[in-house]
């Protein structure tokens, strides 16, 4: 029985520092602490996991979502999708709320600044399905903001961002501070 207990303890421990890079086809971003990571997980609502405050469909895209990794039950926080235009991962993952998926992407492990179990998801494969790219954010934004059609990336045209820039300026200190800064900046 002692042997069983020890084996069980040791079997659980390595999962905490497991290497998830095997089979990953994630694109490298050249980030200081990135690690390719392909793993199976359940998409979940962190408020539900932590505080029992559960919403239907993980909030349907309004709440953040997390990945409960099958290998070690770790709660991994996906901060970013595959796009390079300041987009989070919720639009790509929330449709799979409660489902088991395979995800491929980059874990960021930089404990010196508190980064652990945070993730950039690049592709998602639902159980029994095909891989799909985690890049739906900008299409979702375009559907929600048809009046903003025009040249330039979304973040130059987003009405809420433009309103904040109008209100507080690029530095957040107001128009006068911006104008003073521009004299040196340009």
């Amino acid at each position: 029985m002692i042997r069983f207990a020890l084996i069980a303890t040791l079997a659980a421990a390595p999962a905490l520092a497991q290497d998830f890079s095997e089979g990953s086809e994630a694109r490298e971003w050249g980030l200081f602490a990135e690690q390719k990571a392909l793993f199976t997980a359940t998409v979940s609502d962190p408020l539900c996991e932590l505080a029992g405050d559960c919403a239907d469909d993980c909030g349907g895209g309004t709440r953040q979502v997390v990945l409960i990794r099958k290998a070690d039950n770790a709660m991994v926080f996906p901060l970013k999708n595959a796009q390079s235009a300041f987009n989070g991962a919720v639009a790509d993952l929330a449709p799979f709320c409660g489902q088991t998926v395979d995800v491929d992407g980059l874990l960021i492990e930089d404990p010196e600044i508190g980064a652990t179990n945070v993730y950039l998801v690049q592709r998602i494969r639902p159980e029994g399905g095909e891989w799909q790219r985690a890049n739906t954010w900008t299409d979702n934004w375009a559907e929600k903001n048809p009046e903003t059609e025009g040249p330039g990336p979304w973040f130059r045209r987003d009405p809420r961002v433009l309103e904040e820039l109008e209100r507080e300026g690029y530095l957040g200190l107001g128009e006068e501070a911006d104008q003073e800064f521009f004299k040196d900046w340009f």
């Binding site: 980064a115 954010w137 961002v161």
Partner: peptide, 27 residues
């Protein structure tokens, strides 16, 4: 956390305010 824009001291405060707006709006 990622360092994608530079070190942690550079991606806070006024220097990074506009990017913080983009990222917040971006989810």
């Amino acid at each position: 956390f990622s360092g994608v824009m530079g070190g942690p001291d550079a991606v806070v405060g006024t220097a990074h305010h506009t990017c913080a707006l983009w990222c917040s709006a971006g989810g």
